[in-house]
């Protein structure tokens, strides 16, 4: 089944092609398409040609539904599968294979460096692709978990804008907030 082609123009004036069904994974693109103001090419001034193919790859994989593997594991239940018990089991198996395959795909898809992570987060945010935003944001969160403030700064290449005195005071305040009765 072939669907209408949509053309997307990156910030550096390169044009990319995407199926309409895939483009609908993006809330922003979906609104443009449904709004009927489709004028040949959709310009995306916030997405560069480095990152747009990566975004399109995600949209293609996720077609009309824009959830991550977690969501599909819960949803996507066939309504009349209860009618035939055999079918039920088969469908479950197929569903499992599909979810496993998608998880593997996500793992490979998410194997990139930090600059791509930033760009992809921004693009997902701008294009309102919920599944992709969750995926990238969770990866960023995993770079924070269990780390000290110094390690977080190093991970994200951030310079603290606290003065040494401010920082010392902040640490004291945090400790104070954390104060708890011993043996409680």
């Amino acid at each position: 089944m072939s669907s209408t082609k949509i053309f997307l123009k990156s910030s550096d004036d390169k044009t990319f092609e995407i199926d309409e069904t895939a483009a609908r994974a993006s809330e922003t693109l979906k609104n443009i398409i449904d709004g009927g103001c489709l004028d040949g090419v959709i310009p995306l001034p916030n997405v560069s040609s480095n990152i747009l193919p990566k975004v399109i790859e995600y949209c293609k994989k996720h077609g009309g539904d824009n959830g991550s593997s977690k969501k599909i594991a819960n949803g996507g239940v066939d309504k009349d599968k209860e009618i035939l018990p055999d079918y039920d089991e088969e469908e479950d198996k197929r569903e499992k294979v599909r979810v496993d395959e998608l998880k593997k795909w996500e793992e490979e898809y998410m194997d990139f460096d930090q600059q791509v992570l930033y760009d992809l987060m921004l693009a997902a945010n701008y294009l309102h692709i919920k599944g992709l935003l969750d995926l990238t944001v969770e990866k960023a969160a995993s770079m924070i978990r269990g780390r000290t403030p110094d390690q977080i700064r190093e991970n994200f290449n951030i310079n603290s804008d606290f003065t040494p005195e401010e920082e010392e005071e902040m640490i004291l305040i945090e400790d104070e907030w954390d104060d708890e009765w011993a043996f409680d």
Partner: peptide, 29 residues
């Protein structure tokens, strides 16, 4: 990069629930 992150930082923080992580985050900048 810290400006890039600022745009989506609130989304990232939603995934952080532990008190220790949150305290560390508030000391970054």
């Amino acid at each position: 990069p810290d400006h890039v992150l600022e745009n989506v930082l609130e989304n990232v923080l939603v995934f952080l629930t532990s008190r220790r992580d949150r305290n560390s985050v508030s000391l970054v900048s």
